[in-house]
Nucleic acid binder design. Structure first.
Length: 181
DNA sequence: TGGCCGATATGCT
DNA sequence: GCATATCGGCCAA
């Protein structure tokens, strides 16, 4: 059993953290899987640090903490704040279920593992997270295991934004059927 | 205090 | 591929 990641993993530059998180395993209780999709947000125009600067102020003052937000009145998504020297957070967008798969399918009300956590709102539900976790130390609430072998990571523009939409700050496992969209 | 809009998911055509 | 549910946060007034 490898040593879990600690908060200092998230202290580095947000683009590095977001890329390195791809291929790592995230666990909450007995459920979780391999992170196959992340996005980086810094001080850019699409970042909640700008568009939700009061609610997301922790992006500028913390790293390694959970930042949970709600969107479209019906979904929640989770980030881990990053970068000890500037505003940053990594949005966890998709995992390949490997632990407690049946439990995650049950939480989601689906039967296809490819539809269990292939999107930030789905991931939030599948892992059994709660909005009250926002602000907590990520590595106390969750377990992050470093990736084992090598992973081919693709880079592409972030999904679902209109501002700074061209920035290639989305990271995915090449060829994974568990990424969003 | 009102109106606009979004780091989404789903179901229907 | 497209419509739409649904509501908190933000800012202009």
């Amino acid at each position: 059993m490898p040593r879990p990641l600690t908060a200092d993993f998230f202290a580095r530059d947000t683009l590095v953290v977001a890329r390195d998180l791809v291929g790592a395993t995230i666990l909450h209780g007995g459920t979780g899987g391999v992170i196959v999709e992340t996005e980086a947000y810094k001080g850019d125009a699409a970042s909640h640090f700008v568009t939700r600067r009061h609610k997301a102020a922790m992006m500028g003052t913390t790293y390694g903490r959970l930042y949970v937000y709600s969107i479209y009145g019906m979904h929640h998504c989770v980030n881990v704040t990053s970068d000890r020297s500037g505003p940053g957070a990594v949005l966890l967008r998709a995992i390949e279920p490997t632990h407690g798969v049946d439990e995650m399918l049950r939480r989601r009300g689906v039967t296809d593992p490819r539809n269990a956590a292939s999107g930030p709102g789905k991931l939030f539900v599948a892992l059994g997270l709660d909005p009250s976790m926002t602000g907590r130390a990520a590595c106390e609430v969750l377990t992050f295991l470093p990736r084992k072998g090598s992973v081919r990571v693709d880079t592409s523009p972030r999904i679902g934004i209109t501002k700074d939409a061209h920035l290639p700050w989305r990271f995915t496992v090449r060829g994974s059927p568990f990424v969003s969209r």
